[in-house]
Design a protein around this nucleic acid. Structure first.
Lengths: 212, 212
DNA sequence: CCCTGTGTACCGACTGGTTGGTACAGATGA
DNA sequence: TCATCTGTACCAACCAGTCGGTACACAGGG
């Protein structure tokens, strides 16, 4: 059922784990750039150096792999981008959000916009075609959006933003604008588009800020 | 040019023109929802009732069809959404932009967000995989963004917005935010997300407006 | 008025390559 | 010996694109 990682006394072949991880890593990389449908099993096998039978030992199907990759992407996003900004209790809510915007910008700068947002790409490609993926993706974006909503509500409670700020609507708008900015950056291959958009998003936020 | 139904001298086989158009219409519909790679020629043929040989009489390849569809989508977008808002000389620039935002919202409401933005979908799916499509798509978004930049520059000249407004950056941000909002609406299947985002975009605009 | 030639529009069977997925035999370690 | 891994050969379905052929409108020459 669960991954039972804690119990695990390293009994399994040591490679049992790394094979699965090698597949996951290769597939995540390829699907990020080429999309889900356009990435073939053979591509993934070639990239990871794993045989086909071996692949089907670790994954039930390509779809199963897809779900696993989604979990992978989400975990990385939470760990590397979302959590670090919102876990510091000394920072004020709005500063947390601005920190998050910068972090997203940095993550795009690192790849110069190539590949775009792995989650956003899957939304565009699959959410009207594959209900299972759509539901999972909606869940992920829900988490992301909730984190922002919580911060905005905290900001309202401590008087950092005025009552005009509707946390839910603002959170939706932040997520949407970031996704759009990443998409446009991927299209133009010009990171300055991303920089401009994040800057405007910062100005937008200050619209609600009281006493600046 | 026009459908020539009135004039109709039955010179060519009457079906010469409408066959191409039937293919184009069916393919545009299918690709909008299922994406480019995931829509097969057979799907298009079935949907349009056209034989395979006939298809390849009218189009060089699937890629060729793709380009034709792009032209189709762009023409429709310019004609039905972009031009009507910016061609009225009596409206002030900012009003033109707000009119445009509403029109985009309406176009999504009509389909309840299903399918998302046909152009945005193609960007996500193809721009990192197919350089030809990427270039064409970049051109289209360039036109769109230029139209907004022009309006913002006009707004600055006539004093409707202050000097803090950088037309280029604001135009990029508007396009990005709209695309992101459409994507999120497609994911959540909830048109109120789109409504919230457009409302926030309206507030953002008023940030630059002088004397409101 | 017929015969022949030509260009346009169309059809559906077929092909070669690719895809996700399976069968199975061999390896490895407890 | 048995359960866990892994490689290889294979398969049916599917894909974009090709090919040989049909139907027909329209010329022009006799």
């Amino acid at each position: 059922m669960t991954t039972t990682k804690t119990i695990e006394p390293a009994a399994k072949t040591r490679d049992g784990r790394s094979t699965r991880e090698a597949i996951l890593a290769a597939a995540t990389r390829l699907i990020h750039v080429h999309g889900y449908n356009h990435t073939t099993l053979d591509d993934i096998l070639r990239e990871s150096g794993v045989g086909k039978g071996n692949f089907y030992y670790h994954f039930k199907s390509k779809e199963d792999l897809g779900y696993a990759i989604l979990d992978e992407i989400v975990a990385a996003f939470l760990q590397r981008t979302l959590d670090p900004c919102f876990s510091d209790p000394t920072a004020r809510p709005l500063a947390q959000i601005r920190c998050f915007l910068d972090r997203v910008l940095e993550s795009q700068r690192a790849r110069n916009g190539v590949g775009g947002c792995p989650l956003g790409n899957l939304v565009a490609e699959l959410s009207d075609v594959h209900e299972g993926f759509r539901r999972r993706l909606a869940g992920v974006f829900g988490i992301w959006q909730t984190r922002l909503t919580d911060a905005l509500e905290a900001a309202r409670r401590c008087g950092q933003v005025g009552d005009a700020c509707r946390p839910d609507a603002v959170a939706h708008f932040l997520v949407a604008s970031l996704e759009g900015a990443i998409l446009l950056t991927k299209l133009t291959k010009d990171i300055s588009v991303m920089e401009q958009c994040v800057a405007e998003l910062g100005r937008y936020l200050s619209l609600y800020e009281v006493g600046v």
